[in-house]
Amino acid sequence: MHAIYIICLKGPAFVEAVEVDEPTAGAESVVIDVHVAGVTFPEVAQSHGEYHLQRVLPFIPGTEVAGTVRSAPSDSGLRAWQRVAAFPGIGGYAATVAVPPTAAVFPLPDNVSFRAGAALPMNYLTMHFALVRRAHLKPGESVLMHGTAGGVGTAAVQLAAALDARVIAVVSEPGKLTAARAVGADEVVWLAASRTLCGS
């Protein structure tokens, strides 16, 4: 099958397209034919050898995917050909990935594209956990978000807005003001002094 290897730790420009055997799936694994794989912070960091989980070279990166189920355990609630998004944690940059039972695999509604689905697990589930389970965000409350132009920041603004909170976004550059408003921020603050305060 087609896959992408990280073959050295010189950055994303040095990944390599390869042909490898399909993954060996355990009886409890969900096997997914990958249509789209997300690009997240871990892949970039892994390509430089800077991620906290170190892998033996070469390896197939890819923490989040969207695709169709090839096979699944009978008690998983999933079926063959079903559209899903998943968080395999590793191995998603391949035509097929075997997702362990402890990973998040969830049905993808027909009105959500594979491209959008592949962007959900890392950023949106992280922020859902932070806002709903940790912060217990309620409608009408205000949220101050820093770093709203990146993937996690965008997800944070969108989810907080969807939860009917008032969102105040803080950006580091004037060019990011429009982006923060476009994803749902009620107010946007350009913290121009942040570079001086951080010593740069």
Rank of each mutant, 00 (worst) to 15 (best):
L9E: 15
I90Y: 03
R133N: 15
F87S: 10
T196S: 05
A155G: 10
A27V: 07
A193Q: 14
G11Q: 13
A27H: 08
V97G: 03
V170Y: 02
V20N: 04
H52A: 07
F87K: 12
R70A: 02
G151M: 09
Q54D: 13
V56T: 15
E43S: 03
Q46M: 14
A182D: 13
S194I: 13
R166D: 08
V167N: 07
M1G: 09
L191M: 07
C198G: 00
T40R: 11
D75V: 06
P58H: 07
V84W: 11
C198I: 04
A86V: 06
N123H: 11
I60Q: 02
P174Y: 01
I32D: 00
S29V: 00
A118M: 03
P58V: 06
A161Y: 03
S29W: 00
A25P: 03
V30E: 01
S47F: 01
Y51F: 13
G38K: 11
A119Q: 11
L197D: 07
A25R: 03
C198P: 00
T40S: 11
T126A: 06
W190M: 04
D186E: 12
A185F: 11
E16W: 08
E50I: 00
M145V: 15
S113F: 02
A27M: 08
E43G: 07
L144V: 03
A80C: 02
L9N: 12
G62D: 11
P73M: 05
H136K: 12
G153S: 10
L137I: 12
P12T: 15
N123T: 14
S71Y: 02
A45Y: 12
H2N: 06
P107G: 09
L120C: 03
G140E: 12
V20R: 15
A155P: 00
A37K: 10
I6W: 05
L78I: 10
A179H: 06
V39W: 09
V56F: 02
N111Y: 08
F129D: 09
A156V: 14
L108G: 05
H128V: 07
A86I: 02
V157S: 06
P107Q: 05
V65E: 08
G199F: 02
V97Q: 05
G26E: 00
G26Q: 00
A17T: 14
P12K: 10
V18I: 15
A162Q: 12
A156E: 05
G89N: 06
G38T: 08
V65T: 13
P88L: 04
E173P: 00
